[in-house]
Design a protein around this nucleic acid. Sequence first.
DNA 1: ATAAATGCAAAGCATTTGCAACCAT
DNA 2: ATGGTTGCAAATGCTTTGCATTTAT
Lengths: 137, 137
Amino acid sequence: MKPKGFVRRTRQREVILEVLRGTKSHPTADWVYQEVRKAMPHVSLGTIYRNLKTLSEHGEIQELAFGSTHSRFDANKEIHYHFVCERCGLIEDLDMPVIVGLEEEVAQRGYNVTTHRLEFYGLCPDCANNESMGKAN
Amino acid sequence: MKPKGFVRRTRQREVILEVLRGTKSHPTADWVYQEVRKAMPHVSLGTIYRNLKTLSEHGEIQELAFGSTHSRFDANKEIHYHFVCERCGLIEDLDMPVIVGLEEEVAQRGYNVTTHRLEFYGLCPDCANNESMGKAN
DNA sequence: ATAAATGCAAAGCATTTGCAACCAT
DNA sequence: ATGGTTGCAAATGCTTTGCATTTAT
């Protein structure tokens, strides 16, 4: 029996991966689109987006979210770290000390560091609990 | 001479700050909007967005970008940290070792940690240089 | 054969903006 | 009085989707 939800190997998917592997510039979807078009003038942006999503879901690439569809705001001005639950979306402050010397370490590499951001992803206690009890999603 | 670009103290700005200071939930702009409406039925979403931006630019609150308007993709599957230039938008990999024991530290607080993300913000070498030379933006 | 993937165009949706009226200083 | 701020609505801009058609397996 053939597996359902099987991921096919298409030319557009291959070109997209090639393009991505050929750069260190952390490109946007649109940049990838422009590059892929050079080899396949008829690709559609939709295909690029669908493949980038599929590829990152399968761990072939990493997606880094920047900008903001859903910015969150915090009246706490002090630097602090967050935990983000990948199941319920909860975002909580972590009562964890700010790591000292971290920005200095990057500054030594020639960067002028203003601030840093550290986030942990996973399941919050509640979701981890529901998951193990086989609750619905 | 009165300063230009002075920030006024408006009722909507105050209510927005109050709402934000009254929660630990890292709300979205829309949640803030719904809350502020309870006190000021006529506020507009545009005002919420404008004020959230002003407030974070002035360091009164923190904005945490989630989701993605401008996702970036990386064929490098290994976990690694990034530097983001706030002036030119450059995003670079940092050749910096992954901090050991970090996820364990959060796990001890009851979270089920899958991964983490660490980013540094500031000026890249080029931009820092141009800035000091008084180059245009 | 058959379900996944594509191209194209039409939504979706959070966020931004133009503009006249308004109001804090 | 003056220019920052607001409300309203239209516009952006990235990303997602519906659908008929291709295409990989």
